[in-house]
């Protein structure tokens, strides 16, 4: 059985493996006295939905920001398609970043731009499409996410859940190779949650993108995940398929599963 998040004891230069879009080795990061990542090893499998779970404050967002070069690690390697991005300068990273789309935990919409301009932003920056084409693409994306008619509004005029979906539209609009979602469904109602889940699954399916999803929502995780990894106290403690995760007996994982009601007590 091929394991997609492979865990290794020793940090070493991984041999390039085509199955993995991103390979993380021995990642360490501390903020002052707060040692957040303590040697994370993680493989992100190509064309799959890779889900990272873990308690609040365990460093999931920090890990995700490392993958796209927003934060430099103190130690360790991050290989994106076999290239170590840790030593890259900012302008060199721009090439790598075009492979990515990212949804931030709090959406991070530009509040001086309208919804339409926000979603159009990556298209305007990185394609030569005409205004009409851009508008058409943006409208289609917004409609698909149930945001019809919000084009001219500003982010401050939207609800938290709507903002999140606009952020999702902005991440998806360039149809990148890798999509990273930081808690895409937190704060959404059950129906919107399901829609967003479907959108993530469908995008992964249709475009063959590699997805990295941070989630607290265990139901979603098991609905769409191909591979699940758990981050706890600065390392990846469990990785596997949903079926493997379901039967793993790591105590923190068990508690996660039972309290969220995905598996029963006893």
């Amino acid at each position: 059985m091929v394991s997609l998040f492979r865990k290794r004891k020793v940090a070493q230069v991984p041999v390039r493996d085509e199955r993995f879009q991103i390979q993380v080795r021995g990642l360490h990061k501390r903020f002052g006295d707060n040692e957040v990542l303590r040697g994370v090893d993680l493989d992100i499998e190509r064309h799959q939905i890779n889900i990272i779970i873990g308690g609040s404050g365990q460093g999931k967002s920090v890990l995700l920001k490392h993958l796209i070069g927003l934060i430099k690690p103190d130690q360790g390697q991050i290989l994106v398609d076999g290239m170590d991005i840790v030593p890259l300068k900012d302008y060199q990273l721009n090439e790598v970043r075009r492979k990515f789309g990212m949804l931030f935990q709090y959406a991070a919409l530009f509040d001086s731009l309208t919804v339409e301009e926000n979603v159009a932003f990556p298209l305007v920056e990185h394609t030569k499409k005409s205004k009409a084409e851009v508008r058409e693409i943006v409208r289609a994306k917004l409609d698909a996410l149930g945001l019809h008619g919000t084009e001219k509004r500003f982010p401050s005029e939207l609800s938290g859940g709507m903002r999140k979906r606009v952020g999702l539209a902005r991440a998806l609009v360039l149809e990148p190779d890798i999509l990273m979602y930081d808690e895409p469904t937190t704060g959404l109602d059950p129906i919107a949650t399901k829609n967003v889940d479907n959108m993530i699954a469908e995008t992964a399916e249709r475009l063959g993108v590699t997805s990295v999803v941070i989630s607290h929502d265990m139901a979603s995780t098991f609905r769409i995940g191909d591979r699940i990894a758990m981050l706890n106290e600065g390392t990846i403690v469990v990785v596997g398929t949903p079926a493997e995760i379901m039967h793993n007996d790591h105590p923190v994982l068990r508690e996660f599963l039972t309290t969220s009601g995905v598996v029963g007590h006893r």
Partner: peptide
Amino acid sequence: DALHTMAV
């Protein structure tokens, strides 16, 4: 950060 991620 979002600008960074969009390679701007």
